[in-house]
């Protein structure tokens, strides 16, 4: 088992908790972490002609914003932590994409934060944590 940890990080407080936990584990094991930020996206959603025309431009903007507002600050902050960090920024279904990042990176585990209350939509469509528990190729840690 490798000591590489994929952390699902969305900039929220629970994401932060997951990241802190992962950093502690990585430091203890001498491992590294991959900070993964996934932008929810379905290729089967419906768009208007105008949205289609602007999609490429919007995508560039969304990626740039995610990088500068979500990923760059934590990377800079972790630079002094002594833990080797890298980032992954992808579009897709969140749980599926985290699994894919884990296998592509050859990670040994996935860490995510818990969103808290079980919402109605989570009951209907399943939560990220639930889907990961079902489908992840590696052990998953859910940080409360």
């Amino acid at each position: 088992m490798t000591h590489k940890i994929v952390v699902g990080f969305d900039g929220s407080a629970s994401g932060r908790a997951a990241l802190d936990f992962a950093v502690r584990v990585a430091r203890a094991q001498g491992g590294s972490i991959v900070i993964a930020h996934v932008l929810e996206w379905s290729p089967y959603s419906f768009l208007t002609p105008n949205e289609i025309e602007e999609r490429h431009k919007r995508r560039k903007e969304e990626l740039a914003r995610a990088r500068t507002a979500v990923l760059d600050p934590v990377v800079a902050e972790l630079a002094e932590s002594g833990v080797e960090t890298s980032t992954a920024l992808k579009y897709g279904h969140i749980a599926e994409t985290l699994c894919k990042i884990a296998s592509d990176e050859g990670a040994g585990q996935i860490v995510i934060g818990r969103t808290g209350h079980s919402t109605l939509s989570a009951r209907l469509f399943g939560s990220v944590a639930g889907s990961l528990a079902q489908a992840a190729p590696v052990p998953v840690t859910i940080v409360p």
Binding site: L39, W41, Y44, F46, L47, I52, H56, K90, Y91, G92
Partner: peptide, 11 residues
Amino acid sequence: PDDAGEVSHFQ
């Protein structure tokens, strides 16, 4: 998959 987020053929 790296092009995810662009307009898909389906869309």
